[in-house]
Amino acid sequence: MRLSDLPKGSPAVVDRVDDAHAGDPIAQRLRDLGFVEGEPVRLVARGPLGADPLLIQIGSTRFALRRSEAARVTVRTEVAA
């Protein structure tokens, strides 16, 4: 599932970040900011207009990502153990 499709509040784990094109700087920055395999993420809020941007919590940091940015991140939802 893409991070941009994640329902609000449900916990998930980052699978990978895909480059939208070769040498995609946005994807590289996402990885630098900690969007790497195995990190838990959560959708905290959506922007008021067109549900964009998204407020994503990763670790103890919150980032505002536009939908197109969040779409680069693939996540898997954890099944409650």
Binding site: R29, P53, R66
Partner: peptide, 9 residues
């Protein structure tokens, strides 16, 4: 081409 937001709150 695409513009990035990527902003910390």
């Amino acid at each position: 081409s695409e513009h990035a937001l990527l902003m910390e709150l």
